[in-house]
């Protein structure tokens, strides 16, 4: 074995980084400005690395655990996230955004992004965390519960409230 005091790398954790860094960076980058997101993505893995002894594989996979750390870090930038949604609500997506082109034939993208952003800004933090973990991270209800440290039923109720508010903002009938 390489003495821990000398070894710079941990091959096991390096594998975790390689497997999940991109998606964590993307998740944070869709909620905050990219410059902040890259720092927070790195901080997510730093925290995970330092607390890796607390991770219990029996309680779930490492992926929701990482998303949970990232979500807590995003929570420290709540005002920045809300400012971003309000800016998007006013101006729509930045020019050249690919997703904007894909839905151009369904509805005016600027209007949709604007309404969605305004609606996301109007959700509670808990509701927003749940719906964005599912939308951006693709997490299941159970994984969201693990990530946020809440009960499965709490996830379901928060999601239900969030979807209702979004539908109202978008003018979509029940």
């Amino acid at each position: 074995m390489i003495p821990p005091a000398v070894t710079v790398a941990d091959p096991g954790f390096g594998t975790v980084f390689d497997a999940h860094y991109q998606e964590i960076r993307r998740y944070i980058g869709r909620r905050l400005d990219l410059a902040v997101a890259e720092d927070l993505a790195a901080e997510t893995f730093l925290i995970a690395f330092r607390l890796r002894h607390r991770f219990d594989p029996a309680q779930g996979s490492i992926r929701p655990w990482l998303y949970g750390i990232a979500t807590k870090l995003i929570g420290r930038h709540r005002r920045a996230e809300l400012r971003r949604y309000r800016a998007l609500a006013r101006a729509g997506p930045p020019p050249g955004d690919d997703a904007h082109e894909q839905v151009l034939d369904r509805i005016t993208a600027v209007t949709t992004v604007g309404r969605l952003s305004g609606a996301l800004a109007g959700l509670s933090k808990g509701e927003r965390d749940v719906i964005l973990l599912i939308a951006y991270g693709g997490l299941t209800y159970q994984e969201v519960a693990e990530a946020l440290g809440v009960a499965y039923g709490t996830v379901a109720s928060r999601l239900n409230r969030a979807r209702t508010k979004l539908r109202e903002s978008l003018g979509v009938p029940e």
Binding site: V8, F17, Y21, R26, F49, S117, R167
Partner: peptide, 30 residues
């Protein structure tokens, strides 16, 4: 609504592999 969020909300550009590698090295050095 969930698919709509994922489809229309702005996405992030691909990462810079060099920067990512530097981040990786810094984290593992911790």
């Amino acid at each position: 609504e969930i698919d709509l969020i994922n489809s229309v909300m702005p996405d992030v550009p691909p990462d810079d592999p060099v920067r990512t590698a530097e981040t990786r090295a810094r984290i593992l050095a911790a």
